[in-house]
Amino acid sequence: MSPAPDERDRIRAAMDRILGGTPQRSNGALTIVALATEADVPRDALTQRHLDLKNEFYEKDRARGEMPDSEKRLRRQLVKAKELRAQALKEIGQLKADNEALVGALHQVVMENRQLRLQLAERPSNGHVLPTQPRPSVR
């Protein structure tokens, strides 16, 4: 399928409308998708046939001194990712501390249990020491 003869003109007009803040067909975002929508051309017209116009659009956008919408979106995502990472690291630190506390408590209980078993073993034979592991049942 060959491109429409006025495709380049429509893309340039759409560029002017978007960069001028007066989009008619798109949301006015500074993206190739919005430019294609505004020019009423398929997206691949900008990504395959008219790469020079795509690059010109981005250059004009940068020349205005404003950050492209895609970069703004990526920067917001980066900030969110950094916040989530910091939160995860904090949770990991807390889990490590909790784990150490639980290991310490388990060690203390094991030592107390061992001491109680020794005390029971030293008593007269009127008490029975429970086995440390259950014995298999006989069937």
Rank of each mutant, 00 (worst) to 15 (best):
M1H: 10
P3D: 07
D6R: 05
D6N: 15
E7L: 13
R10Y: 04
A13D: 14
A14T: 05
A14E: 06
G20H: 10
R25M: 01
R25I: 02
S26N: 02
S26Y: 02
G28Q: 05
L30P: 04
A34N: 12
A34W: 07
L35H: 05
A36H: 04
A36Q: 06
A39M: 14
A39P: 11
D40L: 03
R43P: 00
A45Y: 08
H50E: 12
L53H: 07
K54H: 11
F57T: 07
F57Y: 06
Y58D: 05
R62K: 13
R64A: 03
P68E: 09
P68Y: 10
E71N: 02
K72Q: 03
Q77P: 00
Q77A: 02
Q77D: 07
L78G: 04
K80A: 03
A81L: 04
L84Q: 10
L84R: 14
R85G: 01
A86M: 00
I92A: 10
I92K: 14
I92E: 09
G93D: 06
G93H: 02
L95A: 05
A97Y: 00
E100W: 08
V103K: 13
Q108G: 01
V109S: 05
N113H: 13
Q115P: 00
R117Q: 15
A121M: 11
E122A: 15
R123T: 08
H128R: 14
H128P: 00
L130D: 10
L130R: 15
Q133T: 15
P134K: 09
P136I: 10
P136C: 08
S137T: 05
